[in-house]
Structures are given as structure tokens and as C-alpha cells.
């Protein structure tokens, strides 16, 4: 399994990188950590004529934490997030979800940008992004534009990124104090892509009722998405056994899981309900 032939460029600036993409169109692919892209090339499921390596592009590995939230540069790696002193406090859901991603060696190379841009339906970060209303920054020949996570993921390996654009950053809005949250996934083995997973958060109003419930689900469709019906059952209600059960039931009916050799659709449907239930219990406890 040797890679198909391609050219390689490691431009020094974002402008150069964008220019290379613009010049080569769909024949070029962006390389960051390579932990998802290189297996695709090894299986010859893609045959780009040029790989544009972002390794020298400045500032793409930044992790910025501020009053307005957390911004991760596209080249920041799972190990960077894991080791970042302030991130777990600034965005506990993001930090927790990251712990489930892949294995030690992959985590040392795998990047935020790669996970988002290659858009595996079971990948963790895209699920957190949709649950948290994250905003993605794309750089193209005409400058930058921002796309909401809800509009970014279009299907397996399909996103809103144009062939001449590069994903440069993802921004997670500020995390209020006392926010309730949980991340739950079920994978066959540690580090595997999950059969399904749930990232959720909500706040409590003065009466102790849930508001702004956000539940993102992965592995249950061709893309990560929110469970609006389940959210609706919870908003304005106390988080107790009855409402949790109702939300889980709603979740299981609003997903349309794929059927594959890892699991049948009805299993994934039931699994989503279980994970929603467990995540809500965890968040409430």
C-alpha cells in the first residue's frame, strides 16, 4: 500500500497556500497532521496531484482563550489541547470530548482542522462544534469567511469548504459559568470511532429548569447534527428521570442512522437514546 504519486509543497504563508489551491483546483489537497488524509491516500481512495502542507503557515497552531470564547487554529493538535493548561476550565465539553479521540500516536499529529475538514460522521469534534454553535473560519482567494457548524457539515467527507479554501480556525463561543454538560460515546474499542456519541450542554434558569439545551449527536447520520426534538422536550423543564426519558425517546425517533457492518440502524437508534439518557443524567448529577 504505497501512496499514489503527488507533488508536495510547504508554503510559508496562508496566501501562498491559498494561491496553490486556487492554481490546482480540486487536484490539490490540504495536508495538516495527515492522520485521516494519509490512510485515504494509502487506500488510493483519492489521488491528488499536489499536497499543500500547512506545517509552515504561521499561527495555525494557536489556542486562544478569551472572554469571547475559545479559538483553535486548524493545525492545533489533540495533544496540544490535552496539555493546554487553561482549556479544560475554559471549555470543559471540548476538553472532555477530545480525550476520546484516537490513540496516543495519532493524537500527537492529528489536528482540529483535519477532523473538521474531513468530516467523518462519527468524529468527536464536529459533534461538539454543532452542539456549541461553533463558527469556522475559511480563507480563500477573496479573503476570510465564517460558516456556522450547522451549515458546515454536508455529508461524509463533504463540507462547505470550497476547493480553493483552507479551514484556518474554529471558534467556540464563551462558556458560561455553571453550565451543565456531558459527553458520552460508545466505541467498540478505546480510541475507535464511536458507533454513536452525544455532546450536550444547557444552562439552568432561576427555577432550576433547563434552558438553551444543545444536544449534538455523532455516528447517527451522514453528518453530525443537533437533536432538536430532544432539546425541545427539555427546554423549560426540570432535568429529572421523566424528562430525561422523554428526551431519550425523542432522540431515538429523530435520528436516521445508517446501517453498516459495524451496527444495524435500530441498534444505533437505541444507542443514541441510551447515550442521551446517560449524558443527561451525568450533566444533572
Amino acid at each position: 500500500m504505497k501512496f499514489p504519486a503527488f507533488d508536495y509543497a510547504a508554503p510559508d504563508s496562508l496566501d501562498e497556500a491559498v494561491a496553490l489551491l486556487a492554481a490546482h483546483g480540486e487536484d490539490a489537497m490540504v495536508l495538516a497532521g495527515g492522520q485521516s488524509l494519509m490512510p485515504i491516500l494509502a487506500f488510493r481512495m483519492a489521488a491528488p496531484s499536489l499536497l499543500v502542507d500547512l506545517k509552515k503557515v504561521p499561527a495555525l497552531d494557536r489556542i486562544d482563550i478569551g472572554a469571547e470564547g475559545v479559538t483553535l487554529g486548524a493545525r492545533s493538535r489533540w495533544c496540544d489541547i490535552e496539555r493546554h493548561a487553561g482549556l479544560a476550565a475554559a471549555h470543559p465539553l471540548l476538553a472532555e470530548a477530545t480525550r476520546h479521540i484516537a490513540h496516543y500516536q495519532i493524537r500527537n499529529r492529528g489536528t482540529v482542522g483535519g477532523s473538521l475538514a474531513l468530516a467523518d460522521p462519527a468524529a468527536e469534534l464536529p459533534g461538539v462544534a454543532v452542539a456549541c454553535d461553533a463558527l469556522l473560519t475559511l480563507a480563500g482567494p477573496g479573503g476570510e469567511r465564517h460558516v456556522a457548524a450547522a451549515e458546515f457539515f454536508l455529508g461524509p467527507m463533504t463540507t462547505a469548504i470550497a476547493p480553493d479554501e483552507i479551514l484556518t480556525a474554529v471558534h467556540f463561543p464563551a462558556w458560561p459559568e455553571n453550565r451543565r454538560w456531558a459527553f458520552q460515546e460508545f466505541a467498540r474499542r478505546k480510541g475507535d470511532f464511536a458507533l454513536a456519541g452525544v455532546a450536550l450542554h444547557y444552562d439552568l434558569d432561576a427555577q432550576g429548569r433547563a434552558r438553551d439545551m444543545r444536544i449534538g449527536v455523532i455516528g447517527a447520520s451522514d453528518r453530525p447534527h443537533r437533536l432538536h426534538a430532544a432539546e425541545a422536550t427539555m427546554n423549560g423543564s426540570a432535568v429529572d428521570a421523566a424528562t430525561i426519558a422523554a428526551a431519550a425517546a425523542a432522540a431515538s425517533t429523530e435520528v436516521s442512522p445508517m446501517e453498516d457492518h459495524h451496527a444495524p440502524a435500530d441498534y444505533r437508534r437505541a444507542l443514541v437514546a441510551t447515550l442521551v439518557e446517560r449524558a443527561l443524567q451525568e450533566a444533572a448529577s
Binding site: 490512510p39 487506500f43 467498540r188 474499542r189 478505546k190 480510541g191 475507535d192 470511532f193 457492518h261 459495524h262
Partner: peptide, 16 residues
């Protein structure tokens, strides 16, 4: 064959 990679054919790992 649908399980033609080691991501699909699941071998035991150290945590199992």
C-alpha cells in the same frame, strides 16, 4: 469483503 482494514476488522488492543 466489508471489513478490509484494521479499522473494520477489530483485533484486541491493550485496553480490552
Amino acid at each position: 469483503l466489508l471489513t478490509g482494514t484494521l479499522a473494520d476488522y477489530l483485533l484486541p488492543t491493550a485496553t480490552d
